[in-house]
Design a protein around this nucleic acid. Structure first.
Lengths: 349, 349
DNA sequence: GGAATTTACGTTAGCGCTAACGTAAAGCTC
DNA sequence: GAGCTTTACGTTAGCGCTAACGTAAATTCC
């Protein structure tokens, strides 16, 4: 048990621990990774010796030699939207519980940024990759497919994902809300959201909404397209534009998300426009802001936490080749609030 | 220019590209990394050949051989708080511009989780590490110091950081707000925030606030401590507790952040408590929600974007051994709103 | 109690790259 | 045009680990 002079420059390597413990490198490797084939006494000795030498194993060398890493790459469009930070948190925790390390980045809804990220990520040979949405450049898809890395698309549901998919049907969510709103008696809906090519999921919801309204002969317009950031300020600004750009305000305005809707509510308040009497307001996502408002925004609740959990389980199953399904569609729920009202009822009264 | 049968199983290696191009491995390595010593013609040929073979360089092998990676590890307490997502975004962009890849995680304000993350991170031999706050376990500090990895602490200012520090003086920020509030004439302040040991920076601000009030003989109490999530709902719930727990409501209530303050405003509205007439409300951070409110919350604006930029530059400078300072203290700014009023003026009138 | 198995290790051969140091040929100097 | 420098490569020797395959000793089996 000859003790060496402690840590040569640059930190202890596995060989230093082996020398100190008087065993082979391989025995140290096994002991530290908890792999079978080391007696308990020797294992404990090696572990405490490694601690003493402040040995820090190199994941770089370890993953290279083992030909795989415990990394999982996750990409989301933005953290600006509370939706994605919630999904991310639940996924991350689930991955950590299973021994995976999450590596994360934002793409700002730009497919070329996503493509660059995927390329960088693949270079690290991760155990899995999570992408948001189902709209990716063809090169992104090709790289992922060829890499053989289990890939999961989250947030949007698609029947033909690159590999795996857990999400909601955005068109259906929009359509369902549209039916709810036409049912309430709304006939002149407007929309305030991002440009059509910026956030494809948002556009799908809008298409669903439009579709429901067109079934009863109503056009959804104006559609006001805002530049990011698409949050509180964007909603307020959008409402300003809407009101200034039209002589006959619509009876309803739908928004990309609850935060924009809230910004718009503030603008209405400032201008003395009563909601829902003068105009209905509708958000999306059922964000936490909504839960403290005295007059809740009519919105669609999305199962973010559930989505993160299911996505993590599915990807982990795939990594261990135990996945039995490829896609999971999650339901959304209309959450009526006090920013819309039943116009039919009013007529009847 | 003998063309090989394309990609052996498992993807093309650098050797495959070299064989296809009829040059040595080293020439390919140089060409692809843009290192000098390869003729332009050969470089272009190698690059296009690599693309054709769909060669994906292994960062694992590359970093191991080069003995360093282009990774920068960033840890923040939570994404729940918009503050950290803003800081993260700016830093991430700055790092990316300089060719570094950001790897990110959340610690949920738990020093042991931070410690585990630091250990995992060091195993990847990153070029730099960013931690939030200046409160870390002693083992975390020791590991970081011994690793020799440039480390930056962001958000809190400290004179004696582990290595580098960019932040604000939380005690001073609290104290400054306290002075502003006593100047307005407030004498019975309450506070609603996290437990003292949960968020040390918040506690420092509270201490500053207390200090300013105690100078004019006022106690800051009750201090209501909420469990996470410390956002809208927490603020509303906290205000409920405050109002139910006391016969004489305070003349002022300060909050951990603007979002909690907003939740509390909703509770006041529901109970018919007029703000600021019956009670003042104060937030922290100057979050974007505030910018759309018709009655803005009195708050302290923190320079998040600037902080992210400065932090990234400083860490990059240190990595290239060009740093001239170790710490940067950034100023905060009181942002008066309509949720407090000048009580003195009222008396004089 | 000898053969078959199991346990607890050690040895060998890489993983896929890059740093550092060659070296031959071309260009330059005066 | 001899001697120096520069350019454009190639060669050698790892980076710090792990997989796969030994092998000797201890244990089990009937």
């Amino acid at each position: 048990m000859a003790r060496e002079p402690l840590t040569p420059k640059g930190g202890a390597k596995i060989a230093d621990v082996a020398r100190a413990a008087g065993v082979s490198i391989m025995t140290v490797s096994r002991a530290l990774r908890g792999v079978e084939g080391v007696s308990v006494a020797k294992r404990d000795e090696i572990i405490s010796l490694a601690r003493e030498l402040r040995y820090s194993p190199s994941s770089l060398a370890g993953s290279l030699a083992a030909a795989h890493s415990n990394l999982i790459g996750v990409s989301v469009p933005t953290l600006d939207d509370a939706v994605f930070s919630e999904i991310f948190e639940t996924m991350r925790n689930a991955f950590l519980r299973s021994g995976f390390q999450t590596v994360f980045d934002t793409t700002d809804y730009a497919t070329h940024r996503e493509e660059e990220w995927v390329e960088r990520m693949i270079a690290w040979r991760p155990a899995g990759i999570v992408l948001s949405g189902v709209d990716h450049s063809s090169r992104t898809k090709r790289m992922l497919l060829r890499s053989g890395i289990p890939t999961l698309e989250i947030w949007s549901y698609a029947q033909d994902p690159i590999d795996l998919c857990v999400g909601i049907d955005h068109f259906a969510a929009g359509y369902e809300m549209g039916q709810y709103l036409t049912g309430l008696g709304y006939r002149q809906p407007a929309y305030i959201g991002p440009r059509a090519d910026y956030d494809v999921r948002a556009q799908q919801r809008l298409d669903g909404l439009k579709s429901a309204f067109s079934e009863i002969g109503c056009n959804l317009e104006p559609c006001i397209r805002m530049a990011p950031p698409l949050s509180f300020e964007g909603g307020r600004l959008g409402m300003q534009r809407l009101l200034e750009g039209t002589l006959h305000p619509p009876d309803l305005c739908c928004f990309l998300n609850d935060h924009m809707a809230f910004g718009a509510l503030m603008e209405c308040e400032a201008r003395g426009i009563a909601v829902p009497q003068d105009m209905g307001v509708v958000g999306f996502n059922g964000l936490r802001l909504n839960s403290v408002l005295n007059r809740r925004i009519t919105t669609t609740a999305t199962p973010r936490a559930q989505m993160g959990e299911r996505a993590a389980s599915l990807l982990i199953a795939k990594i261990s080749k135990a996945a039995t399904v490829n896609t999971i569609k999650l339901p959304v729920k209309i959450a009526p609030g006090e920013t819309t009202q039943n116009l039919q009822a009013n007529i009847n009264t």
